[in-house]
Design a protein around this nucleic acid. Structure first.
Length: 949
RNA sequence: GCCUUGGUGGCGGAAUUGGUAGACGCGCUGGAUUCAAAAUCCAGUUCUUUCGAGAGUGUGGGUUCGAUUCCCACCCAAGGUACCA
């Protein structure tokens, strides 16, 4: 039937088109990137997802679509583009699910990944899937373990300002001991000579080296939940108890693997100036690192052996000290507390252990603390200074102790007022009867012996000098950044390639034995003795003879032949979520390499990420740790660049638009939005798929969905039931999740891609409302129609003007990541060309290329219809030509006192005077002036005329 | 609390160096087509209005011939705040 056939071709059949081109790309490996090419390289990376059980919702692809548009654009611009994707597949939700169901996390993870892949494939991304990585794959985490071993085998030399092999440190110990070394290390390292070093036992040597290594064991404070037998994140704690089950949580010290990221504090700060990342993100890293200059001051304690070290940014105010405050967790607290105060102090310490750090920081209104009964000695006046404890001092910041200067610090001031402690005034001519005076710049110091009369800067210098003379202080730069805890008491993470020898000292597995694979366990919970889940593994001991090594049971290990045997129990902790994501961007360059983390050729070709797209919530986690690892790999000659990503864009969150029906509190009635009035009602979530574009509820479907309301009476308005709408986080529990699959099915991937971009600026968060998608879908239909008639005719001036206006705008928009305005531009362009009845291939061809990064499937199809036989993916981007846009006249807006009243069309080559003359003579002007004489006439040629008066 | 971002019609948003506020789209209203509907097309749509005009970009001030845009103070919402990823 020829009639039907013709009609078929007339219609935009997105399902058929999208399937066709996705198959084509896959079959032809259109987007496979080569590790060498004559073209310049460009590396576009989107942060890889954690494959959760819920699947993708429309919020996830936002950043991927933006990245994909940019990657496709760069191909049109002649670049060899690397655009990979993978999965951050270790993580807590899979483990939680395993605990609940007993299913191995590897199985659920595999299922989730397959689902993600299906969903991603539907959207038509130009990923090079041959490079996929999964952090939970042994082939991948082999190299995570390898980096860990490199960190263990390195120390930070402050003299060369970089990480070096531990062997260079040992050589120096052998030569000079540790007296001449400038290293970043633990604070409690004793001094030793070369001779002493040589005489140390192996165990002693290993213990000392551990204090220098870039990853090391230390006691760190954690949120311990005894009932769950696990450590909790701050956000798993609500009001001091665990979110799950409401159990008590306490602060507790545990031995943990740590990363000496503090060694890189200054370089992480300095590096920010060299990368094009959003300023807010840089700000949060800067604040996180928290550099402050000041002094470290040592206070002796009266009648007790020991001293208190504090860090202060205001050594100039040292004569204003009237008390000291220690964090309740400070190690000296139990030592210095007098018997009379013991009970009160212990009670306070216990109470504080129940509060989270965040709670303590956020709560500035409640003032609490206890006097220890002990006194310190002021370094200069030798007067006694009472020592208090207070939870506003955090153990993890600085030294966990402050010298309190109430006249100069508001928190100290409030504390002193509350507990009736003296507030000596050390500022010249400043009233401190109401509040502390923290303005450094605008006063001079008084009542301060040798500091009297000095302004802030001079007083700081002088105070430090005097402290140095006493041997009780020195100038110091302090960082808020702390070493990162790298152990997790979890199952579903990378095992540490570590066993413990007879002395209990950690030993690294040799590279040939990597990866050390995650063992099977029966239960994913902590053991009965409170050990991490790996404690449940039957075989988790390392047994090695020479080049032969394997994982065995404890019995096998104990009974094995002792001659030449090495090994011991393996580490029970696993690595944290950020371990696998800290170098994945490099691994994509050469993901199947089994000999090395990646080849020199690959890393020297791709070097670094040119554009990285991801959420701002990773600002101080993933993005700081990755920069740290990259700098370390750089120091050790493994990576050629100090920073892994030149440019970074944060995509915003897509929120959901929840729908509510109003259920009467007493009666079994639900009211439409407009008829609620002042009735007492409860809002009840309705699934957004049951609501149409006009907020009208499908009542029958709703009744099937919520059988408990099937019998309810629905009070309508105008015969319809209208829901109320509210923007909330997109989440299953709020029934506002929208799946991209459904959208692709109903409107197609190209519509989804366009609509995600059309919603608003990439960086901002914005609500999703499926109703609006008909707009971009309608645009694609119009675009399709525009290509129904095409020929080799010459384009008109109007055609060319529309085309080149569009080229200019779209190119600018892509470069500025302003994708939403591009979509509008396409709509305007197609509306104009349709009105112009444009049929010229010389216009339609370039337009298809412009559209193709955004809507690649329809673009390929139209490109083919135009007679091309090659994929559009590598077609050259159209060149903008100014000459088609030149205008000779302008619609001048004429405003009165800054308010536009009417426009006049005038030639653009008029002078200021000519414009003024013409405008003032215009009848509309005369009408608006109504006989008044203007005070002033502002003429900006090419822009505006403003008449004042 | 602190740091960061944002606030413009009924809704998403546009306005690239201070120069025509509301582009584009949704929704809504009216019309064409249709037996009817869907789809499509056309017109209108910031608010108030005595139809002359007036007001208007979270609130209150300021700078300027002119402010969504710059400055000050405040209000509200979202993200982060070290073991969610």
């Amino acid at each position: 039937m020829p009639f039907q056939k013709k009609k078929f071709a007339m219609q935009y059949n997105f399902q058929q088109i999208e399937k066709k081109w996705q198959d084509y790309w896959s079959k032809n490996q259109t987007f496979k990137a080569e590790n060498n090419s004559d073209k310049p390289k460009y590396y576009v990376l989107s942060m890889f997802p954690y494959p959760s059980g819920a699947g993708l919702h429309v919020g996830h692809p936002l950043g991927y679509i933006a990245g994909d548009i940019y990657a496709r654009y760069k191909r049109h611009k002649g670049f060899n583009v690397l655009h990979p994707m993978g999965y951050d597949s270790f993580g807590l939700p899979a483990e939680q699910y395993a605990i609940q169901t007993g299913q191995h996390p590897a199985i659920t993870t595999e299922v989730n990944i397959n689902r993600y892949r299906e969903q991603l494939d539907q959207i038509g991304f130009s990923f090079d899937w041959s490079r996929e990585v999964r952090t939970s794959n042994p082939d991948y985490y082999k190299w995570t373990q390898w980096v860990f071993i490199q960190l263990f085998g390195s120390w930070y030399n402050k003299k060369t300002d970089k990480a070096e092999e531990i062997e260079t440190l040992i050589a120096q110990f052998e030569q000079d001991g540790n007296t001449t070394i400038a290293a970043v290390c633990d604070e409690d390292v004793a001094q030793f000579s070369a001779e002493e070093w040589t005489n140390f036992s192996d165990k002693e040597k290993q213990e000392i080296l551990l204090k220098y290594r870039l990853t090391y064991l230390a006691d760190a404070e954690v949120n311990w939940c005894p009932a769950l037998g696990t450590v909790l994140a701050n956000d798993e704690i609500v009001n001091g108890v665990s979110e799950r089950g409401g159990h008590t949580v306490i602060r507790k010290k545990m031995t943990q693997w740590m990363m000496r990221i503090t060694a890189y504090a200054q370089r992480l700060l300095d590096g920010l100036d060299t990368i094009d990342w959003p300023q807010p993100l840089k700000d949060s890293q800067t604040n996180w690192i928290g550099r402050s200059e000041g002094a470290s001051v040592t206070f002796k304690i009266k009648d007790v052996e020991g001293e208190i070290e504090v860090f202060t940014t205001r050594p100039d105010t040292i004569f204003g000290v009237s008390f000291m405050t220690l964090a309740p967790e400070h190690e000296l607290v139990s030592k210095i507390t007098t018997p009379a105060q013991k009970e009160a102090v212990e009670a306070y310490v216990e109470a504080t252990a129940k509060r989270s750090e965040r709670e303590r920081m956020a709560d500035v209104k409640t003032i609490s603390g206890v006097f220890t009964g002990a006194y310190a000695e002021h370094p200069f006046t030798k007067e006694p200074v009472p020592i208090w404890i207070g939870d506003y001092v955090l153990a993890s910041y600085g030294t966990g102790a402050v010298m309190a200067v109430p006249c100069g610090d508001q928190r100290d001031y409030d504390f002193a007022k509350h507990f009736n402690i003296a507030i000596p005034n050390i500022f010249e001519g400043v009233d401190i009867s109401e509040e502390a005076f923290a303005d450094k710049a605008n006063t001079v110091i008084a009542n301060s012996d040798f500091l009297n009369g000095l302004p802030y800067k001079d007083a700081v210098t002088k105070a430090i000098a005097e402290l140095e003379k006493l041997g009780q202080g020195k100038g110091k730069i302090n960082y808020r950044l702390r070493d990162a805890v790298f152990s997790r008491q979890r199952y579903w993470g990378e095992p540490f390639p570590v066993y413990y020898n007879q002395d209990g000292l950690p030993q690294m597995l040799a590279q040939q034995f990597l990866p050390l694979e995650l063992p099977e366990v029966d239960k994913y919970l902590p053991t009965e003795t409170g050990e991490p889940p790996l404690g449940n593994a039957k075989a988790w001991h390392w047994l090695q003879y020479g080049d032969e090594g394997k994982v065995v049971t404890k019995e096998e290990f104990t009974n094995a032949n002792p001659v030449g045997k090495i090994g011991g129990p393996l580490e029970l902790n696993t690595m944290p979520g950020w371990a696998g994501s800290s170098q994945y961007f490099n691994r994509y360059m050469d993901p199947r390499n089994t000999e090395a983390i990646y080849s020199d050729e690959a890393i020297n070709y791709w070097e670094d990420v040119d554009l990285y797209i991801g959420g701002s919530e990773h600002a101080t986690g993933h993005l700081l740790y990755s920069r740290f690892w990259q700098k370390f790999l750089f120091d050790r000659g493994v990576a050629p660049k100090q920073e892994f990503a030149k440019k970074l864009i944060n995509q915003g969150m897509i929120t959901g638009t929840s729908a509510f029906v109003y259920k009467d509190v007493e009666e079994n009635k639900v009211y439409s939005k407009g008829v609620v009035g002042d009735k007492k009602v409860n809002p009840v979530h309705a699934d957004v798929s049951l609501v149409n574009a006009s907020d009208e509820l499908d009542i029958e479907a709703f009744k099937r969905w919520r059988p408990d309301l099937a019998e309810a009476e629905f009070i309508l308005e105008d015969g319809k039931y209208i829901v109320s709408r509210e923007v909330e986080k997109m989440s299953k529990s709020k029934y506002n999740v929208v799946n991209p699959d459904n959208i692709c099915e109903e409107y197609g991937a190209d519509s989804l891609r366009l609509y995600e971009m059309f919603l608003g600026p990439l960086e901002q968060s914005k609500p999703w409302n499926t109703a609006g998608i008909t707009g971009v879908h309608g645009f694609l239909k119009k675009l399709w129609k525009l290509y129904l008639t095409q020929n080799d005719s010459e384009p008109t001036a109007d055609n060319l003007k529309t085309l080149h206006k569009t080229i200019k705008k779209v190119e600018e928009d892509i470069e500025n990541f302003s994708f939403n305005t591009s979509v509008s531009t396409f709509m305007i362009c197609v509306n104009e060309l349709t009105a112009q009845k444009c049929t010229s291939k010389k216009v339609l061809g370039p337009l298809a290329i412009l559209v193709s990064p955004y809507a690649p499937h329809i673009a390929e199809e139209l490109w083919e219809k135009l007679g091309n036989t090659e994929s559009i993916a590598n077609a050259a981007f159209p060149k903008f030509e100014e000459k088609f846009l030149i205008e000779s006249t302008k619609q001048y807006p004429i405003s009165f006192n800054g308010k536009m009243r009417f426009t006049i069309e005038l030639p653009l080559d008029l002078t200021k005077e000519e414009i003024e003359e013409t405008v003032m003579a215009h009848e509309q002007t005369i009408k608006y002036l109504d006989g008044r004489t203007p005070k002033k006439v502002i003429v900006v040629p090419g822009k505006i005329v403003n008449i004042v008066g």
